[in-house]
Amino acid sequence: MIFGFYAAAAAMVVVALALVLVPMIRHARDEGRQRQVFMLALVITLLIPLCTVGLYLTVGTPVALNGVPKQTPINIDQAIAELQQHLKDKPDDVQGWQLLAQTYSQMHKTANARDAYGKVLALDPNNTAAMVGWAEADSIERHDHMIDGHALELLERSVQLEPDNQRGLWLLGISRFQHGRYDDALTAWRQLQPLLEPGSKVAQAVAEQIAVAQARAGGAMQPATPESAPNGPALDIEVSIAPALQDKLATGDVLFVYARAEQGPPMPLAVAKLTPGTWPIHVTLTDAMAMAPQMKLSSASRVFVGARISKSGQATAQSGDLEGDAGVVDVASKTPIKITLDKVH
Rank of each mutant, 00 (worst) to 15 (best):
residue 71 Q to S: 08
residue 124 D to F: 12
residue 139 S to V: 05
residue 282 H to W: 00
residue 90 K to H: 14
residue 282 H to Q: 14
residue 75 N to I: 12
residue 53 V to C: 01
residue 12 M to P: 00
residue 97 W to V: 05
residue 13 V to D: 02
residue 184 D to I: 09
residue 246 Q to H: 02
residue 229 A to H: 06
residue 113 A to I: 03
residue 69 P to R: 05
residue 154 L to H: 13
residue 37 V to P: 01
residue 82 E to V: 03
residue 327 G to N: 14
residue 319 S to G: 06
residue 21 L to N: 07
residue 212 V to C: 05
residue 249 L to M: 10
residue 208 E to W: 12
residue 179 H to T: 11
residue 273 K to N: 02
residue 6 Y to R: 00
residue 140 I to P: 00
residue 193 Q to R: 12
residue 294 Q to F: 04
residue 42 L to G: 11
residue 345 H to K: 15
residue 251 T to E: 15
residue 96 G to T: 09
residue 16 A to T: 10
residue 155 L to V: 04
residue 168 G to S: 12
residue 236 D to H: 06
residue 51 C to K: 00
residue 80 I to F: 06
residue 173 G to F: 08
residue 217 A to I: 06
residue 236 D to T: 08
residue 179 H to F: 10
residue 151 A to P: 05
residue 162 E to Q: 14
residue 338 K to N: 04
residue 106 Q to G: 13
residue 152 L to P: 05
residue 90 K to T: 13
residue 301 S to N: 14
residue 59 V to Q: 06
residue 42 L to T: 09
residue 264 G to R: 03
residue 41 A to K: 01
residue 260 R to H: 12
residue 265 P to D: 10
residue 153 E to A: 15
residue 223 P to R: 03
residue 305 V to N: 02
residue 45 T to G: 12
residue 248 K to Q: 13
residue 281 I to H: 03
residue 120 V to R: 01
residue 222 Q to E: 11
residue 287 D to N: 15
residue 12 M to E: 00
residue 67 G to S: 03
residue 62 P to D: 00
residue 259 A to G: 08
residue 189 W to R: 14
residue 5 F to Y: 01
residue 13 V to H: 06
residue 208 E to V: 09
residue 86 H to R: 15
